[in-house]
């Protein structure tokens, strides 16, 4: 085992799902080490899915190293943004926080621009997250777009605490608006490194087989791990809302993923780099509330 390994983070982390996949693939090649250093010199922009990827990767690496990871060469604007996103508080057990910024970005539960990284451990967390998102996005989104978003958040976050077996799954949401063009773009990501969709379904749906992609397809068709037979509606409903919004949905679990863009068919991806749990990215554009 090496003493130290440096992992260079790709640029535009989360610009699309592709750089994140390249990041996961690069991580899988990193030799075992007592300590890891994450070199952030190439990062110039981050999106929620990229931040979730960075957080989950940090957890994964920290689980196999003797010391917390170090984040180096981080541009000050990215540092500031990650701090605003609550990244360093959530990751403090796995990552040594870089030097404190001279000018820190004040965080407030009433800031109307974003929902910072929030851990989901129980149903009260889900209610608090949706309630907070409602306060934030009621300024920007009109009905039914707002309620569509809140329904999506509720269903996805509930899946984390009900099915993932990961007490540290989390969600975050970013928005960009253009008053001139009258629209708002919403980017949402939810992720965990728990048992994954296969792990959740396999115990009572032995007919599905071993491939993660088949479990992903099964869950989109409403299969549920509940013995009562109720449930299994969350992801199909999320997909329906995203389709109605003409948005995109990326849902990844283990080595498989499904992608939907607008009304197009679901695209299946297999043979991805293994990552435990489930990671989801959603984006859509909606008219700006006047």
């Amino acid at each position: 085992m090496n003493d130290c390994e440096v992992v260079t983070l790709p640029n535009v982390l989360g610009g699309d799902v592709l750089p994140v996949e390249q990041f996961y693939a690069a991580l899988a090649e990193v030799p075992k080490a007592k300590q890891y250093i994450l070199d952030a010199k190439h990062i110039s922009f981050v999106k929620p899915y990229g931040i979730i990827a960075l957080l989950l990767a940090t957890r994964q690496l920290a689980a196999h190293s003797e010391y917390p990871l170090q984040l180096k060469n981080i541009p000050s604007n990215i540092h500031s943004y990650l701090q605003r996103m609550n990244f360093f508080n959530v990751s403090h057990n796995w990552l040594t926080t870089p030097d404190t910024l001279e000018e820190s970005w004040a965080r407030s539960a009433y800031t109307p621009n974003l929902l910072e990284i929030t851990v989901i451990s129980n149903s009260d967390d889900v209610l608090n997250i949706v309630s907070r998102a409602s306060r934030i996005f009621s300024r920007w989104l009109i009905l039914p777009d707002l309620n569509g978003l809140l329904s999506v958040i509720s269903e996805l976050c509930a899946n984390v605490y009900e099915h993932s077996q990961d007490q540290l799954g989390c969600v975050l949401i970013q928005k960009h608006s253009s008053e001139q063009q009258g629209y708002v773009q919403v980017h949402l990501s939810v992720g965990d490194i728990g048992c994954g969709i296969r792990g959740s379904l396999a115990a009572i749906h032995k007919d599905i087989g071993p491939e993660p992609i088949k479990h992903l397809l099964a869950v989109m068709q409403g299969r549920t791990s509940r013995q009562t037979g109720r449930g299994g509606l969350g992801l199909p409903r999320v997909e329906q809302i995203v389709r109605q919004q003409n948005g995109y949905l990326w849902i990844r679990s283990e080595t498989a993923a499904l992608l939907r863009r607008g009304a197009n068919d679901l695209i299946q991806k297999t043979s991805l780099t293994y990552l435990p749990g489930t990671q989801i990215a959603i984006g859509f554009q909606a008219p700006l509330s006047s």
């Binding site: 149903s123 889900v126 209610l127 608090n128 949706v130 309630s131 409602s134 809140l150 509720s154 509930a158 009900e162 109720r230 449930g231």
Partner: peptide, 9 residues
């Protein structure tokens, strides 16, 4: 929370 009837629980 007010007006929000959410989650299976």
């Amino acid at each position: 929370p007010e007006s929000l009837f959410l989650t299976r629980d």
